[in-house]
Design a protein around this nucleic acid. Sequence first.
DNA 1: ACAAACCCTGTAGCTACTATAGAGTCAAGC
DNA 2: GCTTGACTCTATAGTAGCTACAGGGTTTGT
Lengths: 149, 149
Amino acid sequence: MPSMKIGALASTTGCQVQTIRYYEQQGLLAEPARTGANYRLYDDAHVERLRFIRHCRSLDMSLDEIRVLLRFRDAPAENCARVNELLDEHVGHVARRIAELQALERQLKELRGLCSIARPVTDCGIMRGLTAKARRGATNLGTHGRSRH
Amino acid sequence: MPSMKIGALASTTGCQVQTIRYYEQQGLLAEPARTGANYRLYDDAHVERLRFIRHCRSLDMSLDEIRVLLRFRDAPAENCARVNELLDEHVGHVARRIAELQALERQLKELRGLCSIARPVTDCGIMRGLTAKARRGATNLGTHGRSRH
DNA sequence: ACAAACCCTGTAGCTACTATAGAGTCAAGC
DNA sequence: GCTTGACTCTATAGTAGCTACAGGGTTTGT
């Protein structure tokens, strides 16, 4: 099938229709041809490119990082040093986030250990722990805050 | 000081001014008294409550989770079983996210191992890896996608 | 008297989508 | 020929937890 509409592209790549339009709007996917009725028409190159993007996303890369990789994909003769560098940085992000979360996990488990039974909140070690630690100041969330999931 | 303006509260808690107003808007901090010039006036109870919130945030709890904890803080006679449960759930979230990120880290390091030198992109093992794996389909990001940091 | 530093509200921006509203298009069945 | 349903289009708003303006008013210090 040298040519497919957006729904077909979505189902062959396992990507939502709106997400595809979003990538186009963000300049990750080139604007495809259109039918007379203004429907988008994709070919195999689009399929490949979208799969590349989705694979990078499954590795938790940002759209900005992916944009860089796509530029290299489009200029195959260039030197790949920046690609290696980008991946190293990304591995670094992930490793750092893991370390943060592990520190967090330790704190949470410690806190959890402070109450093992159901009792009035006033006597609950967890609530006491949250309040006490809070009282003796300066918890540092960076300027960027934290994210979830 | 039994009464402070928002800037003072911000600097004693290490929280930004806008963040305080945001918490008020989200119903985590009660609306404080106002001066004649409509400036917010906070007392020690506000300081404590904001510190509690920030401590919970430093443990990466969502504002919804914190809202639940605050409700308990406001009703000290109630049973703390829900608090324990909430913390267990939260520890579970964190542990799961760590596992996800570790799997990711393994994949990224494997990919990184595919290219150790600077050469044309066409020959770069990383770009080949991203393309090849992408080609053989079905990377699954869930319906919820991923987050960063 | 005037400037710097503070405060106010309201709004837009960030990431990477997801979900709606309201409209047009197309193929199949009756 | 007409309807029904599945598809497509654009544009807009929502998600989490802030951050950063814009465009004003107030307080404080010299």
